[in-house]
Amino acid sequence: MSSLLASLLYVLAGLLLASAASFLWIRERRSLLVSWFMAVSVSLLAWITTLYMYQYAPTPEVVLQAGRFNLAATVLAAYATYRFTRALAQHPKHVVDSLLGWGALLFALASAATPWVDKAERVGDVAGFHLSQYGWLAPVYLLYVIVLLVAAVMLAFWERKEGKVSVSVRSQLLLLGVGIPVSVGISFITNVLIPLVWGSYRWINIGPLLVLLVMPAVVYVRVAGSSRSSR
Rank of each mutant, 00 (worst) to 15 (best):
E121V: 07
A127V: 07
A120N: 08
R122I: 10
V145T: 10
D125V: 13
Q133R: 15
Q133S: 15
L137A: 11
Y144W: 14
V145D: 10
D125N: 09
A120C: 01
W116A: 06
V126Y: 04
F129T: 09
L142N: 13
G128R: 02
L137E: 04
H130M: 05
A138N: 14
D118F: 05
L131M: 10
V117A: 05
V145Q: 14
A138D: 09
L137S: 05
D125K: 09
S132Y: 10
P139F: 04
H130P: 01
F129G: 04
P139Y: 07
G128A: 01
Y141F: 14
W136I: 15
G124E: 06
L137G: 06
R122Q: 14
L131K: 12
E121L: 07
Y144F: 15
Y141K: 05
V126K: 10
K119G: 01
S132M: 10
V126P: 02
L137Y: 03
W136K: 14
G128K: 04
L131T: 12
F129E: 11
V140T: 14
L143T: 14
A120H: 08
A138I: 06
G128M: 04
Q133W: 09
L142D: 12
L143G: 14
K119F: 01
L142S: 14
P139G: 09
W116I: 02
A138R: 11
G124A: 02
Y144C: 09
G128F: 00
A120T: 02
A127S: 12
V123K: 08
W116E: 04
V140G: 07
W116H: 05
L142Q: 14
Q133C: 06
V123L: 03
A120S: 12
G128W: 00
P139L: 06
H130C: 03
L131A: 12
E121H: 15
Q133H: 15
S132A: 14
V117Q: 01
R122F: 08
F129L: 12
L143A: 15
S132G: 10
E121A: 07
A127W: 00
G124W: 05
G124F: 03
A138C: 11
D118W: 05
V117C: 00
G128Y: 02
A138V: 07
L143N: 08
V117D: 03
D118V: 07
Y134W: 15
V117K: 00
S132P: 07
A120Q: 09
F129S: 08
L131C: 05
V140M: 09
V123P: 02
L142G: 10
W116C: 03
H130W: 06
Y141V: 05
S132D: 06
A127L: 08
W116Q: 05
S132K: 08
D118K: 00
Q133L: 13
V140D: 06
S132R: 13
A127N: 07
L142V: 14
W116G: 01
V117H: 00
D118Q: 08
R122V: 08
G124D: 06
Y141N: 00
V117Y: 04
V117R: 01
V123C: 02
D118N: 13
L143E: 09
F129P: 03
D118C: 07
G124H: 04
V117I: 13
W116F: 09
S132C: 04
W136F: 13
L143C: 12
V123I: 10
F129M: 10
V126L: 09
V145S: 08
H130S: 11
G128E: 00
E121W: 13
Y134K: 12
S132Q: 12
G128P: 02
Y134C: 02
A127F: 02
